[in-house]
Design a protein around this nucleic acid. Structure first.
Length: 253
DNA sequence: ATGGCTTCATAGTGAAGA
């Protein structure tokens, strides 16, 4: 079974890339973030046309998440219970017996900002909720844009990024808090190339110079981790014409 | 060098992303 995640930075613009991705990898679930469109504008017909169905929670201009699957999914839920959040950042569904949770964790803007406070509060609410979800669903995968680089090796220049948003200690502690629930960072279960990242700034030729961060992750519950066969970042889609600034990440379980 | 690029938005001295 293949599960994938991709921050597409506008589904309207990236639809051809998404359709190509589905055709090439045929994932059992593809989690998308930053749709940047309202539900009424969701391109269901195009996605159905390549044999996939979608559940989604969108909003105008910002955020928006979806799960694409070749089969009908069950028990769809949106948002985090007990978190009053107008931003569409979470959608979950059960796909072939696996609880798939798609998240777009807040960016945080800068450590001094109110958005950073919101990010840390959001992460705390996610942790509380996930603890309950893991008790309910032993087979659980948390996929998405975490907006956190967990370790030095996930950052092209960790000294320059020290203390900055995406790499600050409280954010890294929140990531470890998710791992402490019993989740495993699937990417680090396997040998990987050095300087492997999932996001590169559009500016400064960030991709060509490989000035990137690994901020898109697939965390697996113990039961899924024990049968996980691979995890890979697909740089091909970042190298295309008019790409998203994020590359897709995929696991085989 | 707080810029640099891309998106959606509106027509802003833009906002937000990461």
């Amino acid at each position: 079974m293949k599960l994938a995640t991709w921050n597409v930075n506008s589904l309207k613009v990236r639809l051809p890339h998404v359709l190509e991705y589905l055709d090439r990898h045929k994932p059992d679930a593809l989690c998308l973030q930053e749709l940047k469109l309202e539900d009424t504008n969701f391109p269901s017909a195009d996605i159905n046309g390549v044999g996939y169905q979608a559940v989604f929670s969108g909003q105008k201009t910002y955020n928006g998440v979806a799960i694409l699957s070749p089969t009908t999914v069950a028990d769809v839920s949106v948002g985090i219970p007990n978190l009053d959040d107008l931003q569409r950042r979470v959608i979950a569904a059960t796909v072939s017996g696996v609880r798939v949770i798609c998240v777009y964790i807040p960016n945080g803007e800068a450590v001094e900002s109110d958005k950073y406070k919101y990010k840390l509060e959001w992460l705390m609410a996610l942790n509380v909720w996930l603890k309950q979800e893991l008790a309910k669903y032993p087979k659980l995968a948390l996929l998405g844009d975490y907006n956190i680089a967990p370790e030095d090796r996930d950052v092209y220049d960790p000294k320059a990024w020290a203390g900055k948003v995406l790499f600050s200690e409280p954010e890294k502690a929140a990531f470890k808090g998710l791992v402490a629930l019993g989740l495993t960072d699937s990417f680090r279960m396997f040998d990987q190339a050095d300087k492997a990242y999932s996001w590169w700034d559009y500016r400064m030729n960030g991709f060509k110079r490989n000035l990137g961060l690994r901020i898109d992750h697939i965390l697996l519950s113990a039961e899924l981790a024990k049968s996980c066969k691979s995890c890979a970042i697909d740089r091909d889609f970042r190298a295309k014409e008019r790409p998203s600034d994020h590359a897709p990440v995929i696991v085989e379980i």
